[in-house]
């Protein structure tokens, strides 16, 4: 019998800056995710939030994935387009580290989505077939450290940008707590945009989400290890879903996205 695939598109390695969290050691985290039945992980690095030497962040991320992943962990490199010569970092992610995608944190890196640098980044990423993951928030704004208050990303300029880069594949991370209704629909309509379920809340949240968001745009994400990774799996259980819906959210959609990005289709 084929194993049941489960692709977690929202995981970070290394240390959360504000506290030690359980499983913030790559070996432990990989073991825990495997126990949860996860078969592939798209991993960024918490170091990418605040470190300025992003080249070493991405090199460490790649090495950690190689050393501890045994095929489980796919590195998604951090790019900060406010840093000098960020284009070289993007090139290294694609060519040296052979990453399938990038992860962006505009609110931690201090730029708005109408910054021309982001438009260039999207264009370069699309040309190289790199998936772009953009994190809307990392933690609840109400309980942030008083010296590190980071508001959610203002996504209003994003729809225009997506229309200008139609071949971009964009995954919005941690977005479903702050993006809903027409604003979310506009982003989904504007391009090949995906969302993941780590910050989706409410009883039967996935059932309700699928009333407004096409099934093929919904991915499984846990935001581990900052969140207990069990939460996302339990959401699959709480909602009444068809086998087809479950299968696509668990892995089908993410696998297809990855394959299409890698083939340049």
């Amino acid at each position: 019998m084929p194993r049941r695939e489960l692709i977690d598109v929202n995981v970070n390695l290394s240390r959360w800056p504000m506290r030690r969290v359980p499983c913030d050691d790559t070996r432990e985290l990989a073991a825990k995710l495997r126990r949860q039945g996860v078969t592939q992980v798209w991993a960024g690095s918490f170091d990418g939030l605040l470190h300025k030497d992003v080249a070493s962040v991405n090199a460490r991320l790649t090495e950690e994935c190689r050393k501890h992943g045994r095929g489980l962990l796919l590195p998604f490199g951090s790019i900060n387009p406010m840093l000098p010569d960020w284009e070289e970092e993007l090139r290294r992610c694609a060519e040296a580290h052979r990453m399938p995608g990038l992860r962006l944190h505009p609110n931690y890196h201090g730029y708005k989505l109408d910054d021309p640098a982001l438009g260039r980044l999207f264009k370069f990423a699309a040309e190289r077939g790199l998936i772009v993951q953009l994190a809307a928030i990392m933690e609840d704004e109400r309980m942030m450290h008083p010296r590190l208050r980071v508001p959610p990303v203002d996504t209003r300029p994003l729809a225009r940008l997506l229309k200008e880069t139609p071949s971009l594949r964009l995954v919005l991370l941690n977005a479903l707590g702050v993006l809903r209704g027409p604003v979310l629909s506009e982003l989904l309509d504007a391009g090949e945009t995906y969302v993941e379920i780590s910050m989706l809340e409410g009883v039967a949240g996935i059932e309700k989400l699928l009333q407004h968001v096409p099934l093929e745009r919904v991915l499984f994400g846990s935001h581990a290890p900052l969140f207990y990774c069990e939460a996302a799996r339990l959401k699959l259980k709480e909602s009444v879903l068809t086998q087809e819906q479950l299968s696509q959210i668990r892995a089908g959609n993410a696998a297809r996205l990855l394959a299409s990005a890698q083939s340049g289709a």
């Binding site: 359980p22 989706l200 009883v203 949240g205 939460a231 996302a232 339990l234 259980k237 709480e238």
Partner: peptide
């Protein structure tokens, strides 16, 4: 609930070491 899910909140207990 219903603002939160049972899932995310049960995970705090099931997932804890």
């Amino acid at each position: 609930v219903a603002g939160r899910s049972f899932a995310s909140q049960l995970a705090k207990v099931y997932g804890a070491n």
